[in-house]
Measured scan of single mutants.
Amino acid sequence: SHFELRVGTITLHFDNISEELAEELEKLAKNGVHADEIRRWWEEWLK
């Protein structure tokens, strides 16, 4: 499923992401983690 995450002024787009993972990314964003860090985390997870 597709997921969009708003982090400050940036909107990150994720394809084929589980609800659980989407929730984890939302938690990171709410805790003030920068969009670049979240994207890096996601790319690492995909490997």
Score class of each variant (00 low, 15 high):
T11V: 15
G8R: 01
W45G: 04
L25M: 07
E43S: 14
K30T: 08
R6E: 07
I38N: 01
T9V: 08
E37H: 09
L5N: 00
I10Y: 03
K30E: 10
A22P: 01
R39Q: 11
T9Q: 13
N16M: 06
L46K: 14
T11R: 03
N16A: 04
W41F: 13
L21Y: 03
F3A: 00
L21C: 04
S1G: 14
S1M: 15
L28Y: 06
L46N: 11
W45C: 06
R39E: 07
H13C: 07
A35V: 13
D36G: 08
E43M: 15
W42Q: 03
L21W: 05
L28W: 13
T11S: 04
E37I: 08
L5Q: 01
W41E: 04
V33K: 12
G8V: 03
W42V: 09
K27Q: 12
L21G: 05
T11I: 13
A22S: 06
D36R: 07
D36V: 10
A22Q: 15
I38Q: 01
E4V: 06
A29F: 06
E23P: 02
H13Y: 13
S1Q: 13
V33D: 04
R6P: 03
E43H: 15
L5V: 07
G32N: 08
T9C: 13
E4Y: 06
L5F: 03
L12T: 00
I38C: 02
E20Q: 12
H2E: 05
L12G: 00
I17C: 03
A22N: 02
K47N: 11
E44V: 13
E23D: 10
T11D: 02
V7Q: 02
A35L: 08
A22G: 05
V7M: 06
E23F: 14
N31F: 11
H13S: 08
A35T: 04
R39M: 15
D36K: 06
E20G: 09
W42K: 02
N16K: 04
L5D: 01
L25H: 00
E20F: 08
A29M: 05
H2K: 05
N31C: 08
F14D: 00
E19I: 12
F14Q: 00
F14P: 00
I38F: 10
L12N: 00
V33N: 08
S1P: 05
H34N: 13
N31H: 14
T9A: 14
N31D: 09
A29R: 04
G8Y: 05
W45S: 06
F3E: 01
A29C: 04
R6D: 04
H2G: 09
K47M: 13
H2T: 04
H34E: 14
W42R: 02
H13L: 09
E19K: 14
D36H: 10
L25N: 00
D15F: 15
E43T: 14
H13W: 10
R39L: 15
I10N: 03
L5K: 01
H2D: 06
H13Q: 07
G32Q: 04
E43L: 15
L21M: 12
D15A: 09
G32D: 05
L12I: 05
E19A: 13
L5M: 05
E23G: 13
T9P: 11
K30W: 08
H34S: 15
N31M: 13
G32T: 06
D15S: 12
W42L: 07
S18K: 03
H13V: 14
R39W: 15
E20N: 07
L21I: 12
E26Q: 14
K27V: 09
L5H: 00
W41M: 11
I10S: 05
G8I: 04
N16G: 07
D15I: 11
W41Y: 14
L21H: 05
T9F: 12
E26I: 15
A29T: 05
L46I: 10
S18E: 03
S18G: 07
D15C: 12
E20S: 10
I38M: 04
L28V: 03
K27P: 00
R6F: 04
E26V: 14
H13R: 11
I38Y: 03
